[in-house]
């Protein structure tokens, strides 16, 4: 009531009081917005592992005993019989040469290769890659999966 009377008074004092009120009011909403942003960032960063891009058209298989992605590894994606090495399409007959080249240029002794493929794919499509990896001397294959519960 007092405030209402003070505001209704008019003059320079009144306009100053109004301005003060206008500046003080948005703080609560600002704090709310910032706390939501902080929670959002915390959720986004708590996973810790490496970020890996998987196209939405690929439905990865599910596995309960998977491991987190901790190291950067060359990604080989199989899509409808086509092979993509780090998003670059390569022919099946060139797989061995390309993998051998990567292994040769890699500083790591035990090079790992991550394989991304659709759960509905047939094993015959994966077979050339298994053979090429074996011939190129790549021992460790990491199959991308969706961790189960």
């Amino acid at each position: 009531m007092k405030d209402a009377l003070a505001l209704g008074g008019g003059g320079k004092k009144q306009s100053l009081l109004r301005r003060d009120l206008a500046l003080a009011l948005p703080l609560t909403s600002l704090i709310d917005a910032f706390s939501i942003i902080v929670i959002y960032l915390l959720i986004g960063t708590q996973n810790g592992g490496m970020e890996t891009q998987v196209p939405s058209r690929i439905s990865l298989p599910m596995a309960n005993h998977s491991q987190g992605v901790e190291k950067v590894a060359p990604i080989l994606r199989i899509e409808k019989g086509n092979y993509f090495l780090d998003d670059k399409r390569i022919a099946a007959r060139d797989l061995t040469d390309k993998l051998a080249e990567i292994k040769k240029n890699s500083e790591e002794k035990d090079l790992e290769l991550m394989i991304q493929a659709d759960t509905e794919m047939k094993y015959a499509e994966l077979d050339p890659l298994i053979k090429a990896g074996s011939l190129a001397g790549i021992e460790k294959l990491k199959f991308a999966v969706v961790p189960g519960k």
Binding site: S66, I138, E139, L141, K142, F143, V145, V146, P147
Partner: peptide
């Protein structure tokens, strides 16, 4: 979140 299932292949 993506995980991996690791295998060790014969070379």
């Amino acid at each position: 979140q993506i995980g991996t299932l690791d295998t060790k292949q014969a070379v």
